[in-house]
């Protein structure tokens, strides 16, 4: 068999991608492809895990048993989503411990949105409707990506995300039918979460260092700005439907493009938050590190128990 050079392998790889073939774990892939996917997938998984914190904040204070049961199920789903993606990331040859280590030392990032606090019950509505709404737009696109295990995890997640999206909208719709204070609480929440939700799609296309490569490899199928636009277009009518407005005085329907045009995003704020200077960055990381350290004895005890049982079976 002829041994192919690195360039030839890379060319063949790109041909497979261009033909729409899906890459599986044991296939040859450029080191950069592997690295970019590990970065993206682990970041995505960490976001699911950190995402449990702002919502977990309201489990004990949910306004009814129904809302509490729903929120518990949703937070459990987020843990599941994190695990689907961790499991996919490990197929790229990195261990779970390494992935977690990079997270806990702060080397790996997570979505900027979870560094905002959940101050009122309406924020649980806003997270479900806006944050999970943005996530659905993103993940539906990722489900068509070129790496098999990532795409399959996305398909699984998208199915569950629709429940998250709708329960959030239901919370806000209920508040908007309530008292003046409740309507104000819902609107205040949207005022705080609208722009951070738009930032979830990442930097603008002319300032997105990783995009070109990821699109060439079909890890991403659409650009950040395209997905952001798709989210805005589908969200504004939903807002109007229950009498909510978004805090963007430049937002308007453009009859010509058939899209909403929107005001400038505050990229200074975005960069501050992803670089650790958001409102809750320190609190979130501390919560994760504490959970990891406080759970260490459980992991060790389970290991010890398994070893003891295994040695007993051998002896018997």
């Amino acid at each position: 068999m002829k041994i192919l050079s690195e360039e030839e392998l890379e060319l063949k790889f790109q041909e497979r991608i261009d033909k729409g073939e899906i890459i599986e774990p044991k296939d040859w892939m450029p080191e950069r492809y592997r690295k970019q996917l590990i970065r993206m997938m682990s970041q995505h998984a960490h976001s699911e895990i950190v995402g449990m914190l702002p919502e977990g904040n309201w489990i004990t204070r949910a306004p009814s048993l129904r809302r509490k049961a729903v929120l518990l199920a949703k937070v459990q789903d987020e843990a599941g989503h994190g695990l689907y993606i961790y499991s996919g990331t490990e197929t790229l040859g990195i261990s779970r411990d390494q992935v977690m280590g990079d997270f806990l030392t702060g080397k790996a990032k997570y979505s900027s949105i979870f560094n905002y606090p959940t101050l009122t019950w309406a924020d649980i509505g806003a997270i479900g409707w806006l944050v999970d709404g943005a996530a659905i737009v993103n993940q539906t696109a990722l489900a068509k990506g070129s790496y098999g295990p990532y795409a399959r995890a996305m398909v699984r997640i998208c199915k569950e995300e629709n429940f998250h999206h709708k329960q959030g909208y239901e919370i806000l719709a209920t508040l908007m039918k309530g008292s003046k204070e409740q309507r104000e609480m819902a609107q205040d929440s949207i005022n705080r979460f609208w722009w951070p939700s738009l930032m979830m799609f990442g930097p603008s296309d002319n300032n997105s260092p990783n995009s070109a490569e990821l699109i060439k490899w079909k890890v991403k199928k659409y650009s950040n700005d395209e997905l952001r636009q798709r989210f805005i277009d589908r969200t504004i009518p939903q807002a109007e439907n229950i009498g909510l407005t978004v805090p963007d005085k430049d937002l308007k329907w453009d009859e010509e493009t058939r899209h909403y045009s929107h005001g400038e995003i505050n990229w200074v704020e975005f960069n501050n938050v992803i670089n650790g200077r958001g409102i809750c960055n320190k609190e979130r990381m501390k919560a994760r590190r504490d959970a990891h350290e406080n759970g260490a004895w459980v992991r060790e005890a389970a290991n010890a128990y398994a070893r003891k049982k295994a040695s007993k079976t051998k002896a018997a």
Partner: peptide, 30 residues
């Protein structure tokens, strides 16, 4: 690492009569 739980591949059967399908993986000590 020494502390990491072993990896298990998971296969699910949606209902009796259907084949088992790979779902993903989990870590567990036993």
């Amino acid at each position: 690492s020494a502390s990491e739980w072993p990896l298990w591949e998971v296969f699910t059967q949606r209902r009796a009569g259907l084949p088992f399908e790979h779902a993903g993986s989990v870590h567990a000590p036993d």
